[in-house]
Design a protein around this nucleic acid. Structure first.
Lengths: 186, 186
DNA sequence: GCCAGCATGTAAGGAGTTACATGATTAT
DNA sequence: ATAATCATGTAACTCCTTACATGCTGGC
């Protein structure tokens, strides 16, 4: 019995962005990933996107088309093939449901607060809170741009989820910061 | 001007667990990481903990003591050195505040819902919701065990934060699942 | 004229995982 | 007896990042 293997998750990030129908270059893929996927999944490095596109083309999941601007400005735009679409759908439907992987260094540092300077701890939480609010503001803008167009129905769902998540995170951090502030000096 | 380098984050996970004063073996470290750190930071593999302990001992941040049980049952228990404590405190206080790294494959799959079978999507969200609730229940138990003892003040703070976070995630997933359920069949 | 943005890629290395290998002790 | 848990470690490999390398185009 053949084991059905899946590609790495980054492959599906690339296939996924191409599944909305637009033909995209590696550069455009990176830009778009940074302002969409990045809110809930690590956006791959530029170099990895190019590597990934080569691999996916070799496997027949995407096809590149020369889209150079002028003589010397080389440029390659990719689109999904039928095989690529099938492979992506197979992953979305049938990959095992994995727990989200989180690496929250701010939480780790608060966990270790007994070795820290309380003033620094407060500053770290404040900085994290500010960043969280900025991320939320950016996501709200993205959400507004998605509107209620059917094409962006699922991204909009995820954006709403993300807004709730970030708002909750901001509340929780603020609460933790208040409690740290009430702590006695070392 | 010398660049002050930091160890990798996993090093601080190990140093951090040892900073609560107990002398621990690699095996115990892994167990404890799985039921504490794991709620907000990837718990390192067994093999990595042993590698890390060797590295940290060579650098003088921890010291191992032979704690064999009987003749043939080899066992090594580690504790923080003064240098290790300083290095940990330096990281907690002075490392740049980094955004939490998240890899949420369930959100990614919902984002790509337009290529999915709606029934599968619902099942995936339900499974994720169930897992989230189970994780929350596990965390509540951990939080209860921490009590309001001063030693566990900061872990308790993080546990409270985590409970809020997981409760929020559960609400948000449930909301997304309801909206997916109202979607027309493909 | 220069800088920001567009555009692509290679090479080296870091961080971590899985698979493998081994064996003692304790509970059923 | 036999399975689960305790306990340690190595080797190979995967995935991904950073640093490097190159050069065009458009705006100020």
């Amino acid at each position: 019995m053949r084991e059905e293997r899946f590609l790495r998750t980054t492959s599906y990030v690339v296939l996924g962005l191409l599944s909305f129908g637009r033909e995209l270059t590696g550069y455009e893929l990176k830009q778009w990933a940074d302002e969409s996927i990045a809110f809930f999944f690590a956006s791959p490095a530029m170099s990895q996107i190019y590597t990934e596109l080569d691999r996916l083309e070799a496997a027949g999941f995407v096809r590149g088309r020369d889209a150079s601007r002028g003589a010397d400005r080389s440029r390659c735009a990719y689109r999904l093939t039928a095989r690529g679409t099938r492979e992506l759908a197979r992953w979305v439907d049938h990959a095992p449901v994995a727990a989200p992987a989180l690496k929250h260094t701010v939480a780790l540092r608060l966990f270790l607060g007994h070795v820290a300077d309380p003033a620094r701890l407060r500053a770290i939480l404040d900085e994290h809170l500010e960043r969280t609010r900025a991320t939320l503001a950016a996501l709200e803008k993205v959400r507004a741009d998605l509107g209620d167009d059917e094409t962006w129905r699922f991204p909009a769902l995820v954006a709403d989820w993300g807004e709730r998540y970030l708002a909750g995170e901001a509340d929780a951090v603020a609460a933790a910061a208040r409690r740290v502030r009430r702590l006695p000096r070392r």
